[in-house]
């Protein structure tokens, strides 16, 4: 540390400067009054809080600039509490600053390192302890202890097994089966092709299985579908995918292939679907090909057909798992 020698010299702690309140009793009295005023403001805040709690009905609204029509109960309850807390704090700080002794104190630091004797003694104690236990000599005990300690951790892990069922095929299956009608969400009304104009969309779910009275969230999380009608000539699909559409109506899983948000921002002019979570953009005319954003796969397309009554149905289940990717997914 040669440069330490060259440094200019430390002038030392500057002399203490007295505050007005230290020397002038009038100033001290003034400071005392200020602290008292701050504490009293806090007391007033508590009174405002109590008053608001009891006397201001929770359906009273006051008009305030910026905030608009504001709930008076919530506002004054909050302001009362805020003032009561804030001014206690300000009073205490002001008191400490102006009236409590403000002489700075210097304290020496101690070294953290233990003395050499202490260290030696500690090492000796530890060694003696280990020797007394005889762990080093009795290798049979050491090994079997290692084994048992290693295994005992398994029990609590195993106990966690029943946190949930195994996935099995539940990620690859949805409620859509061949012949399932598409129904509106909400409303559960079946849909005919002529119900949709060109440029129209509809949020749909599979019709409820007999005996069920509503869609569970776990079902919706896999079943939600978006129905879109284009002019048939706008499609740019291969023959198979084109056969999955009906008179320009095309259906995609609404669950994003990236992280599972509902992809439902349909831009009618560009025919793009946008996911509001991470901005993956899909091209409806090309079977939801990814145009932009982090999604790596198109949205699964649902094959459509008509039933005997002219309602839209699923021609077949989804041919691939819907929703975000997972390890066991094959493509």
């Amino acid at each position: 540390m040669s440069n330490e020698l060259e440094s200019i010299s430390d002038p030392g702690i500057p002399p203490h400067v007295h505050r007005k309140a230290d020397e002038d009793p009038i100033a001290a009295k003034r400071a005392e009054r200020q602290v008292a005023i701050l504490f009293s403001l806090s007391a007033l805040g508590t009174l405002l809080f109590i008053f608001s709690y009891i006397a201001i009905p929770d359906d009273l609204f006051v008009f305030l600039p910026i905030m608009g029509n504001t709930n008076a109960h919530q506002l004054f309850l909050g302001l009362g509490l805020a003032f009561s807390l804030f001014f206690i704090g300000m009073g205490a700080i002001h008191w400490a600053k102006t009236l409590m002794p403000d002489n700075e104190v210097t304290v020496e630091r101690h070294e953290f390192r233990s003395s050499d004797e202490d260290r030696k003694e500690f090492v000796k104690t530890a060694k003696d302890g280990a020797a007394a236990a005889g762990l080093g000599r009795r290798s049979l005990i050491k090994r079997s202890l290692g084994l048992s300690l290693g295994l005992v951790g398994l029990s609590p892990l195993l106990l966690l097994r029943d946190l949930g069922p195994l996935p099995e095929d539940s990620l690859t299956k949805t409620s859509w089966k061949a012949g399932t009608r598409l129904v509106t969400d909400p409303g559960d009304r079946p849909i005919k092709p002529e119900d949709l104009e060109v440029g129209a969309v509809a949020q749909v779910l599979p019709e409820l299985a007999p005996g069920k009275d509503h869609h569970t969230l776990s079902d919706i999380a896999k079943d939600a579908v978006l129905l879109i009608r284009l002019r048939p000539e706008e499609f740019n699909l291969d023959a198979e995918r084109l056969s999955w559409t009906h008179e320009g109506i095309i259906a995609f899983s609404k669950i994003c292939s990236h992280m599972g948000c509902a992809v439902a921002l349909y831009e009618q002019q560009t025919k793009h679907l946008l996911c509001p979570c991470h901005q993956s953009t899909f091209d409806v005319t090309r079977a939801a090909k990814v145009l932009f954003g982090p999604a790596a796969r198109p949205l699964p397309q649902l094959a459509l057909a008509l039933d005997s009554e002219g309602y839209l149905i699923a021609k077949q289940p989804f041919t691939e798992p819907v929703g975000p990717s997972f390890w066991e997914r094959s493509s």
Binding site: G78, L85, F87, A92, A96, D102
Partner: peptide
């Protein structure tokens, strides 16, 4: 001094949080 300042500052933080919440 430090006790009063730190204690007071707790109330200030609580007060400011409550003010924003209000």
């Amino acid at each position: 001094v430090y006790m009063a300042k730190a204690g007071g500052f707790f109330f200030v933080v609580f007060g400011v949080t409550t003010f924003i919440a209000a």
